[in-house]
């Protein structure tokens, strides 16, 4: 590969990653166009170095994204969230003492105990992908809260989408 092609590939990759870097905690939609600002505070941090703990707080890094959203009554992880999971798997793999709690949630529809099970199923799906991508089992705990900890409380689709989620919470970095 010549230098020009390599540069194009890197720019393209950066664009994709920047696209993924939107804060999904506020808006559970597929990552779209990149924001206008790109690299201001990343002069010394490589946002794609997923072994670097500083990227956990770096808004330009996928590691700063910690929420995976799900469809109703489903627990399969949609393709657009795979890069986030892969980034955290890389971090966990590179930092064996790091630990995460996968706090798993359901929307309010249906019965509460069933939703506890549904939340856990989502957490387990994220756990399986983290492990498949290099994290080890003893780094991951799944805690399902079912519908008991909503982030949004209206009985409508927009709200339900935001509540059907797994939050990746670092209990040790």
């Amino acid at each position: 590969m010549n230098t020009g092609l390599r540069l194009i590939a890197i720019v393209a990759l950066a664009a994709v990653l920047a696209a993924c870097a939107r804060d999904v905690r506020d808006e559970p939609v597929a990552p779209t166009a990149p924001g206008s600002s790109t690299t201001t505070q990343t002069d010394r941090i490589d946002a794609r170095d997923f072994s670097d703990a500083r990227n956990l707080e770096n808004p330009d890094s996928l590691l700063s994204q910690r929420v995976i959203y799900f469809e109703f009554d489903r627990s399969d992880v949609r393709a657009q969230f795979r890069p986030i999971i892969d980034a955290h798997a890389a971090y966990l793999s590179a930092n064996p003492s790091a630990r995460v709690s996968l706090e798993s949630h359901a929307d309010e529809r249906g019965s509460r105990e069933y939703n506890l099970g549904l939340g856990e199923r989502r957490g387990n799906a994220v756990r399986a992908l983290l492990e498949a991508a290099g994290a080890s089992a003893d780094q991951i705990e799944v805690v399902s809260y079912g519908e008991e900890r909503p982030v949004c409380r209206e009985s409508e689709n927009n709200c339900w989408e935001r509540n059907r989620r797994v939050e990746i919470v670092y209990t040790a970095r």
Partner: peptide, 25 residues
Amino acid sequence: GINGAPAWSPDGRQLAVSLSRGGSP
């Protein structure tokens, strides 16, 4: 995992529960 859905047996001696210690509830 999940420790949930307790239900007291009519004789008061047992609780039926839902546990996911085996991987699923």
